[in-house]
Design a protein around this nucleic acid. Structure first.
Lengths: 122, 122
DNA sequence: TGAATATATGAATATATATTCATATATTAT
DNA sequence: ATAATATATGAATATATATTCATATATTCA
């Protein structure tokens, strides 16, 4: 007897194994749209240079030069990274003359950094 | 008189403009190593599929099939993403027969997700 | 033992992104 | 007006990563 179907190794994509658990999970599962926004925020935090920039701003405001100097990286690189952080509203900028001062945008950011630090340090 | 130097447009990488602020920032600035670990954790959270997987696990445990079914993605893709989450200790797996159940690893993860959701929803 | 099923994973490809370089813009001082 | 300086940004390159496909592994059941 011949079998024209290719051998199926995984059925599970077409049906849930635990319908009750899945029904409950539906209540907390976020939409694709919201997941994308959340992911974009985490993405902005997902670079060592940006993490260092943010931790340097935990208690003081700094200008671009200060940050480039502290991190030993180029002004251009810092500006590019600050743009990412600004776009995601993680930092805020204010101009004074030709100097631009950056601060953390709000306390959420401090919390996120602190939780992540807690997590990696067990 | 001739100037053999190429025109310098940016001095600020070589000196801080606000030494006092920089000195204060040094206290909170994390090391490169720690920044890399923190960044890796955020990186694991920085994908819409992984965010949805994590939010689906906020209150219940689910097996791989359940998650593939809920998200409408392939079992392979889910397994690959779960590996990332496992490696960063964001989820934990337990086997029962041929089914593997996943849960959030600890409450830090819940907090991180919640803070990020707060942030994107203003 | 062999078939079925749940999960994991290596390789390949396509896409995203971090840095550098060059240069533009904005502000101040001469 | 011109020079100097702080910052921003476009283009290019190099590296990381998400998904797919094929297949391997582990467990159960007949």
């Amino acid at each position: 007897m011949l079998n024209l179907m290719t051998k199926q190794t995984t059925m599970c994509e077409n049906q849930a194994i635990h319908p009750d658990a899945v029904a409950a999970a539906m209540d907390t599962l976020v939409t694709n749209d919201l997941a994308q926004n959340v992911a974009r925020t985490f993405q902005a935090l997902a670079d060592p240079t940006r993490v260092r920039l943010l931790t340097s701003l935990l208690t003081v405001e700094l200008c671009v030069c200060d940050m480039a100097y502290m991190l030993g990286t180029s002004q251009s690189a810092v500006s590019h990274q600050l743009r990412v952080l600004r776009d995601l509203k993680l930092v805020r900028a204010r101009r004074s003359g030709r100097v631009i001062y950056y601060t953390l945008d709000d306390d959420h950011i401090r919390d996120l950094l602190q939780k992540a630090l807690d997590h990696v340090q067990h």
